[in-house]
């Protein structure tokens, strides 16, 4: 309990931005290899940082089922279950656009 309080405090004291990658859920840090965390000039891969979590979840579900066509996202989305997808979506939604 004391430890928890301490780490919450440490986070509040030391973190710079709103959502630091430290609390990124499993898998999220791999998405940014293609979906730039900051605005990269000249990328045709859509940006997902700052998007509504529900929309990210919808895309991932539809990609996973194959209902929505994609070049690569169908193959990637199949690696994440609903719970993992929701955690990742919430994290991206909290990132600056």
């Amino acid at each position: 309990m004391g430890r928890l309080l301490l780490s919450v405090l440490a986070l509040a004291l030391l973190s710079g931005g709103p959502a630091q990658a430290a609390d990124a859920p499993p898998g999220a840090s791999s998405c940014t290899g293609c979906h730039a965390p900051l605005k990269v000039t000249d990328s045709v891969i859509p940006r997902i940082a700052g998007r509504k979590a529900a929309d990210i979840v919808t895309f991932m579900r539809e990609y996973r089922s194959g209902a929505w066509p994609s070049s690569v996202m169908g193959r990637i989305a199949k690696g994440f279950d609903d719970q993992q997808t929701e955690a990742i979506a919430a994290w991206f939604a909290a990132q600056p656009e």
Binding site: G33, V44, S71, R75
Partner: peptide
């Protein structure tokens, strides 16, 4: 999960993936 691009490409998929590749490198 995972796998390779489909053997039969429809709708300009190979061109699209070439563009995504370049975007991936920049990112």
């Amino acid at each position: 999960a995972g796998g390779v691009s489909p053997l039969t490409a429809v709708g300009g998929l190979r061109g699209q993936e070439a563009l995504y590749a370049a975007s991936w490198f920049r990112t």
